[in-house]
Design a protein around this nucleic acid. Structure first.
Lengths: 203, 203
DNA sequence: GTCTATACAGCGATAGAC
DNA sequence: GTCTATCGCTGTATAGAC
């Protein structure tokens, strides 16, 4: 469980995570095995258990790292995007990049397999969606304040709509291998919030 | 593969499909085994192979039956819903019923696992989404004609947006066990098409 | 830190009795 | 149509040498 960090295993652990992440995003957590990783990394299955004692431990580490990287990406969007509308586009682009690699969002994939996951992984998956929701809620409120965005319902509900819609657009577009299918859906979705005066306040 | 239909195995095959369908919608195609079915049905694993020679055969039969039942549900919506807007609500309600049983849409689940599926199953999954798309496209065009619906982009693109958004709302709401989360997302999504004069034609 | 060797349960699937 | 029995393989995980 607790592994002391030397130069060696830090690199090995990271490579294991890289390969496992790819496998989960393509095949699912129940769709790959230690043997797949060992084959690609060129070390034995047994050696993998040194770095991650159980598959559940590997899974939790996978989500943690993914969530951290995602947080960094969101910070990057904040840094380069001036308006709320552009930030939403930047958010959708994060999904688009995943689809370009013919992968599913890690946590979208795990959400499908949710009921088969060990509980620590379940908790981490929900934390990821919560993290997305908080960020989007902030962007939506900002956009509402400065008048650049407009939406029915609360910022929170709209954030949840966006998360679900983009995850689902990714889910469905991937079998078709159709990047454009996702791009169009994301554009149409976000356009419904971006257009000024498009949606009068609910009666 | 080809099974002659007697009174006996028709009933047994249907019960196998019932149990397998439930398992796939909860745990995924890679998350259940013949042993799970045999345990619940009270017959041996070996007996299952009489009805469905391979797991792939079972999977294809599963999707076929699901698609047929879904088509019947859509016909039911057509029958009871007078307007395009009400038909869209009826469509969303089909997803809601699935979530109420704490399940994922069968083909949404299989879309996540897509890359691990035998090709006949892959084809059947896409055919299911195509079927949804055709029906929604018809409803959207009808709504556009009579002025009750309004949307940016084509009917086809909007149909795809709706499919993806509802699949994704289902995917994300299920871990939270939150039916209301889905209901709100679906309502907000459909409201953006339903409100008259909400969206002026694209410039 | 990685190895060999292996345990042991589970998988999908098959053969052949009844 | 369902059974018993079993195959061959793969799964995760462990023990202990190096």
């Amino acid at each position: 469980m607790a592994i002391k960090m030397t130069q060696q295993n830090a690199g090995t652990a990271a490579r294991i995570l890289d390969i496992a992440e790819q496998l989960v995003q393509v095949r699912g957590f129940n769709g790959f095995s230690y043997a797949d990783i060992s084959a690609e990394l060129g070390i034995t299955k047994a050696a993998l258990h040194y770095h991650f004692a159980s598959k559940a431990d590997l899974g939790v580490a996978l989500i943690s790292r993914y969530a951290e990287r995602f947080a960094a990406s969101l910070a990057g969007v904040d840094a380069v995007a001036a308006t709320a509308s552009i930030r939403l586009s930047g958010y959708a682009d994060l999904y688009l990049e995943v689809l370009r690699k013919r992968k599913m969002c890690l946590c979208g994939m795990l959400a499908a397999e949710y009921q088969t996951l060990p509980q620590p992984m379940q908790d981490a998956v929900m934390a990821f969606f919560d993290q997305n929701e908080v960020w989007l809620e902030g962007v939506l409120e900002q956009g509402s304040s400065d008048g650049s965005l407009q939406y029915g319902g609360t910022a929170r509900d709209t954030a949840r709509l966006i998360i679900g819609s983009l995850e689902g657009a990714l889910l469905v577009a991937r079998p078709y291998g159709d990047v454009e299918r996702f791009r169009v859906a994301a554009t149409n979705l976000l356009a419904s919030f971006t257009r000024p005066a498009a949606q009068p306040a609910l009666a």
